[in-house]
């Protein structure tokens, strides 16, 4: 797969529930990249991901993988992608070997040798039951399954939530190796911004069911600045462009778009990180 080419394209997905709406969700994933799909709990991450594999039926919009439409070529597409909720949350009482024995029958490209290598690499014992695996090991097992049938896109819903920092780092390093070794591209959702600091090339940010941004991480981070200063230096003009405005004891703080920097002469400005951006975006005025 030639790197940089769009291999997944989500266009104008809409889905209405009684209390929640997915609104015109669009983004694209490029080959050879890791995209972090970020948003707070309930923002619509899982619904979007489910709609991308037909677990949820969108009211309108389209999803294309490798230029093929999901609605008409679902089985073919699923041969070439992998989707997992967290790690492995099914058949917890069964042994890895039993599940693999069933799973592999469905994939034309299954490579037993590669699978055995991944088991060794990830120190997975096929005689263990799924429930005996730690959460991090479950994620590894799900990656071993996906990579052994040469899935070209891995879609993972919150693979790092609930992992300790060391396991999280380990999983993210595996993600980097997978992408750098040209094995697959990865789209994973998370609300842990440090995951993205570490390994994401691109970021898609969803808020209240709508995509706020989908762009490369560095320019995304660079487009915001944190501002702080005494309230008496705050102009009306500046206040109108501040996101996540906060004031206390005569001081104010918040975040502005980098293009608005000219409105903050003499105000202390500093680079924002992803966590700060997320917090300021979501903070209620």
């Amino acid at each position: 797969m030639e790197n940089g080419r769009d291999i997944l394209s989500v266009q104008n997905l809409n889905k209405s529930y009684e209390a929640f709406k997915l609104r015109d969700v669009s983004f694209t994933l490029k080959a050879g990249t890791i995209m972090g799909f970020i948003g707070r709990n309930g923002a619509g991450k899982t619904t979007t991901l489910k709609a991308m594999v037909n677990l949820v039926h969108a009211d309108s919009g389209s999803v294309q993988y490798f230029g093929m439409d999901l609605q008409t070529r679902e089985a073919e597409i699923k041969q070439r992608i992998s989707f997992a909720f967290g790690g492995v949350d099914y058949y917890l009482q069964k042994k890895l070997g039993t599940i693999t024995g069933v799973y592999k029958r469905f994939y034309d490209q299954w490579d037993e040798k590669a699978y055995e290598n991944y088991l060794k690499m990830f120190a997975l014992d096929p005689n263990k039951k799924i429930k005996e695996l730690s959460q991090g090991m479950q994620v590894k097992y799900s990656l071993a399954l996906a990579l052994s049938h040469y899935a070209e896109i891995l879609i993972l819903d919150e693979p790092t939530s609930g992992l300790d920092p060391v396991s999280r780092d380990e999983i993210l390093t595996i993600f980097e190796d997978v992408v750098d070794g040209n094995q697959a591209s990865i789209l994973f959702s998370t609300h842990i911004t440090s995951d993205l600091d570490k390994c994401a090339d691109d970021i898609t940010y969803i808020k209240n069911g709508a995509i706020l941004f989908s762009e490369d991480r560095d320019s995304f981070v660079d487009s915001y600045r944190l501002v702080e200063g005494p309230l008496d230096r705050l102009t009306e003009e500046l206040k109108s462009v501040i996101m996540g405005f906060h004031q206390r004891r005569g001081e104010f703080s918040g975040m502005i778009n980098t293009r608005d920097l000219k409105m903050a002469p003499g105000i202390k400005c500093s680079p924002a990180d992803l966590e700060a951006i997320m917090v300021h975006m979501e903070r209620k005025a």
Binding site: V53, N54, A75, K78, Q79, Y91, Q93, Y103, F106
Partner: peptide, 15 residues
């Protein structure tokens, strides 16, 4: 209890 419906529908098969 085993989330069979997810395991199965995510396989490359028609629903």
């Amino acid at each position: 209890a085993n989330n069979d419906v997810y395991f199965t529908t995510l396989l490359p098969i028609p629903k």
